[in-house]
């Protein structure tokens, strides 16, 4: 059923429109004046001012591989993160650890570990699924590059972002 909306009846002062226009001009001038006097809060000027210091601990930035206190790359190339990754951004080529090595029991290490940051959606599932506490989402968010190849984070870059993680479980050290 059609509903007829009755238009409001305007009195002569409203129909002249001029008072409304002047009121509108007054409002916009107030904003103009406040900005000139520096009373208006304006948005953060991004590249100069950053919010980095206030990022929460649970912030999900770029994923990165970490080392433990001993300096060992914690990733064991189990490829669970590659499997779980929703946009399939992760590519791992596992390699075998030499039997004379101190950590020979771990058996595998990532020969190549690439994360395509064009595809990554910063969901954090890789961190969640990792049985080794090897991959973490760090606080880096400004990831830029001039080419597609620039945007792929290789193992070295990932380790550089990740750095050393303290206080993680060192399960392989006990079973030497």
């Amino acid at each position: 059923m059609a509903i007829t909306v009755s238009r409001p009846k305007l009195n002569w002062r409203e129909r002249l429109y001029l008072p409304a226009i002047v009121a509108g001009l007054a409002i916009t001038f107030k904003h103009f004046k406040n900005l000139l006097l520096g009373r208006t809060k304006v948005t953060m000027q991004y590249p100069e001012q950053k919010w980095d210091g206030n990022l929460p601990d649970y912030y999900r930035g770029a994923p990165a591989l970490v080392r433990d206190e001993d300096g060992r790359v914690r990733c064991v190339a189990c490829q669970l993160c590659e499997f779980i990754c929703p946009p399939r951004a992760i590519k791992i080529i596992p390699g075998e650890i030499d039997s004379t090595d101190r950590f020979a029991k771990v058996e595998k290490y990532p020969e190549a570990f690439d994360i395509d940051m064009i595809r990554c959606i910063f969901c954090g599932m890789c961190e969640e699924v990792c049985p080794e506490q090897a991959i973490f989402l760090r606080k880096d968010y400004a990831i830029t590059g001039f080419t597609r190849a620039d945007m792929v984070h290789h193992k070295e870059k990932l380790l550089e972002i990740g750095g050393v993680m303290h206080g993680v479980v060192l399960k392989w050290n006990k079973k030497k």
Binding site: T28, H31, F32, N34, L35, L36, T40, K41, V42, T43, Q45
Partner: peptide, 13 residues
């Protein structure tokens, strides 16, 4: 600049 100031922005800077 004027439009920015009226809309509480900074404009080209």
């Amino acid at each position: 600049k004027v439009s920015a100031a009226i809309q509480d922005r900074l404009g080209p800077n």
